[in-house]
Amino acid sequence: MTLQFGPILEQWPYLLGGAALSLWIAVLAFACAMPIGLLCAALLHYGPPAMRRLVAAYVIFATNTPQLVQIFFLFFGLPEVGIILSPFTAVLIGATFNAGAYLCEIQRAGFASVRRTEIEAAEVLGFSRLQIIRHVILPHVMKAMFPPLSNQFIVVTLGTSMASIFGVEELTGRSDNLGAETYLSVEAYGVAAVIYVAMTLIATCVLALSGRLVCRAKMNIV
């Protein structure tokens, strides 16, 4: 077996376009999942008991079942009740549903890491409620949450490869196409793997840098 990377590498604009779509799905899913996670974390803390149990059930269910089967359920199950989703939408909803549960866990833990004594100290110093949130709680929470959140973003990015199964032509889908056209599947997937590594490494570096500048969060890049 000899590897021929030439025909695959010739198609680099096609593959990079796929990588951009992968990243776009991940950004969209993450952006939609963040408020869901925040709302769920808030409900877990302050909601009425019934609501708390519902949110807890959602988190447990979503984190203990495969994302792939969740998307299958949306994509093939919902048409039976008259809701037809495009592959892109189904994947996006599935990824958001899944990420929302993990982000809820992360944000809950982040808020729980604020100690009662910190808030009491701020109260003693005469901080108003808003000032406490602005100067005590938020800096602490952001510093604590930033590393796990950026890790989760990488997990979401890797999870978007499932979109190829539903016919979305992102990076995995496009390398599959190239492999089928050229009969060079090993090379096509190999190049895709390298692009994934490069893509997530760049994302981690950008996140680590902005985390250090904005939230004073210390992160390891590798």
Partner: peptide, 25 residues
């Protein structure tokens, strides 16, 4: 080190396909 860094940054689906096609070829 390289192994751990690579494998954790490639989607499982891609790893699976890579192993599948590699063993086939």
């Amino acid at each position: 080190f390289v192994y751990a860094m690579f494998l954790r940054r490639v989607p499982f689906l891609v790893t699976l396909m890579l192993v599948f096609y590699a063993t086939q070829s």
